[in-house]
């Protein structure tokens, strides 16, 4: 699955090397419990921006956890789809963070979050047209150049579409992967949410994605609302357990990608840590079932 190193960026920088196991988003609320119990997880993922601080407890704990676990750094503020140039100061902070913690993977979103110097703290949607494609590819290449590593780009959860769209989201992502050599972070919940919100066939969407480039999978829970016609409008809330439909879609994705590092995300209404661990291990069981027998210790 990782032999899809396209022309232009042959094997430069650290390859994605997260173990094909279940991981959890690391929440400061769980620092102590993680260190005290050393749960059986393949990796932890952090939101890069939370660690762009000089010192203090966030770093104290992350250093200790990093010593024992693989790490994935997930950016939420780079605004890769932004209309203007990338924020170089932010890229510098990101580079420093990656140098410090040497994560196995770095990922960001196919979205924008800043405009005119304002940061909106949300992952905002993009029109899938040629101009946007050129801009996103330029930004992804710049990020990979600056960070000296291949990045993963995540498919977004969206609530509106653009009249100006010239291609589907899956086509857009496939083209970004082809042109820049970046990997795909397949967020199965986002795929389900976006396809539901836009009346798309999620199975066709999945098959149209550049699945050979998938370096990580995300799972999360959504909230269900309705649009003005009463059709479901799903919100990527990260505030509930993973839905059954998303587990099924995950099985379907794994059958296509083979075992890939899978993260359970939970950012709202955090349950006790053991419950999160249990949910992550539901993914772990599925992954283990797909690993070669010889790999089972």
């Amino acid at each position: 699955m990782s032999d899809a190193a396209p022309s232009g960026h042959p094997g430069r920088g650290a390859p994605v090397s997260l173990p094909a196991a279940a991981g959890l988003g690391l929440k400061p609320e769980h620092f102590r419990e993680v260190l005290a119990t050393r749960p059986a997880l393949g990796f932890f993922e952090i939101h890069a921006e939370n660690y762009m601080v000089p010192g203090g407890p966030f770093h104290h704990h992350l250093e200790r956890i990093r010593a024992d676990y693989a790490l994935s750094v997930h950016g939420v503020g780079l605004s890769i789809g932004g209309a203007g140039p990338l924020d170089e100061a932010h890229l510098d902070r990101l580079a420093a963070l990656l140098d410090r913690y040497e994560p196995a993977a770095f990922s960001e979103h196919l979205a924008w979050s800043s405009h005119g110097g304002v940061f909106f703290n949300d992952l905002l949607p993009l029109p899938y047209d040629a101009a946007t494609l050129a801009r996103v590819c330029g930004h992804v290449e710049h990020v990979q150049e600056r960070l000296g590593r291949r990045m993963l780009l995540e498919n977004p959860a969206t609530y509106v579409e653009f009249a100006a769209a010239e291609m589907s989201e899956a086509e857009f992502l496939a083209e970004v992967v082809r042109r820049t050599g970046c990997g795909l972070l397949l967020d199965v919940n986002n795929a389900y949410v976006a396809c539901t919100n836009h009346g798309r066939d999620v199975h066709a969407y999945l098959c149209a994605l550049p699945l050979a480039a998938v370096g990580e999978i995300h799972l999360a829970g959504f909230a269900c609302e309705a649009d003005s016609l009463g059709a479901p409008l799903l919100i990527d809330s990260h505030g509930a357990p993973v839905a059954d439909a998303v587990w099924s879609l995950y099985d379907e994705a794994l059958a296509l990608t083979g075992p890939v590092a899978t993260l359970l995300e939970r950012d709202r209404d955090l349950p006790p840590f053991p419950l999160l661990l249990e949910e992550a291990q539901r993914a772990g069981v599925r992954l283990a079932a797909r690993l070669p027998m010889t790999a089972v210790a």
């Binding site: 939420v76 609302e225 409008l233 990260h238 505030g239 950012d267």
Partner: peptide, 16 residues
């Protein structure tokens, strides 16, 4: 009390 991380990628508010 311990502080939380303030950056994440959830969407919570919904339409209303």
């Amino acid at each position: 009390v311990a502080m939380k991380g303030k950056n994440d990628c959830k969407a919570g508010a919904g339409t209303s």
